[in-house]
């Protein structure tokens, strides 16, 4: 019996060591990055922008996404507020390192699709607290990752990973991400500004499993310094419904919703 217990302990130690080896910060973030995603997706996105006085502005968007293997195409049609109704925005992002996104905007009043500069990932999306970079998939090799600890949030055990950008000019000095164990999905993320002060906190408040793929349906980004926050809600989510390649064209940008 003693021999058996010793063997079991040794085995547990080996498993524990192996799993500890797997639990580097980089691997956790890679697991998040490689989490299965939909081949295509349609959804209604509502962003509520709330300032420090509690005043709320609402942006409503109909969006379509499609993975083309080495690139992802996204098209967004703005539904509200009224002054941006039927404005559309199209983004093509590429897996290839160093290749900038291609972006176009269609303003119905001007009746013209215009290619826009994509070197503004630090710009805030539609006045929200999310930058374009926050909304995209940041590649794991762009940061140095370190597993800090494990912590429980809302009953979920999370890995806490610190990520420091390799690029000196990046808008954040570091981020700290709480990743739910086994689900490989972020639960919370703190963003630190260039002065190393806490700037924003992202919390993931609701997820849904659709066709075995976990989709974040409710999240909140709060700017700690300005007290401004954005609540992002995804509704009517449909995945792998066979969105046509032709959805991501100039024709559809002009045709609108």
């Amino acid at each position: 019996m003693k021999k058996f217990t010793l063997m079991l302990l040794t085995l547990l130690m080996i498993v524990s060591m192996l799993s500890a080896q797997e639990l580097t910060g980089l691997q956790i973030i890679q697991n998040v990055y490689n989490r299965p995603t939909a081949e295509d997706q349609t959804a209604d996105l509502t962003m509520s922008l709330i300032n420090s006085r509690g005043n709320k502005r609402v942006r409503e968007i109909k969006q379509y996404l499609k993975d083309f293997g080495d690139m992802e195409k996204k098209i967004m049609f703005f539904v509200a507020p009224a002054d941006v109704y039927n404005t559309s925005f199209m983004n093509w992002s590429y897996d290839k390192d160093g290749k900038d996104d291609d972006q176009w905007i269609y303003l119905p009043a001007l009746r013209r699709v215009k290619r826009i500069s994509s070197d503004s990932k630090s710009d805030y999306f539609m006045g929200s607290d999310f930058t374009y970079d926050d909304l995209g998939d940041r590649q794991p090799n762009q940061d140095t990752h370190k597993l800090l600890r494990e912590e429980e949030i809302d009953g979920e055990t999370c890995y806490v990973v610190e990520s420091i950008p390799k690029e000196e000019e990046y808008m954040y000095s570091k981020t700290i991400t709480w990743v739910i164990k086994d689900k490989w999905i972020g639960k919370k993320k703190d963003f630190y500004d260039e002065g190393k002060d806490l700037l924003k906190t992202l919390s993931v408040d609701e997820t849904k499993k659709i066709n075995d793929i976990i989709i974040i349906t409710l999240s909140k980004m709060e700017n700690i310094q300005s007290k401004h926050k954005t609540i992002m809600k995804l509704e009517n989510v449909k995945i792998n419904v066979g969105v046509s390649d032709l959805k991501f064209t100039e024709r559809m940008m002009k045709r609108g919703i």
Partner: peptide, 11 residues
């Protein structure tokens, strides 16, 4: 024409 070059757009 319009083309993206190094984050800028040339038209």
């Amino acid at each position: 024409f319009s083309k993206s070059i190094l984050g800028a757009v040339i038209r």
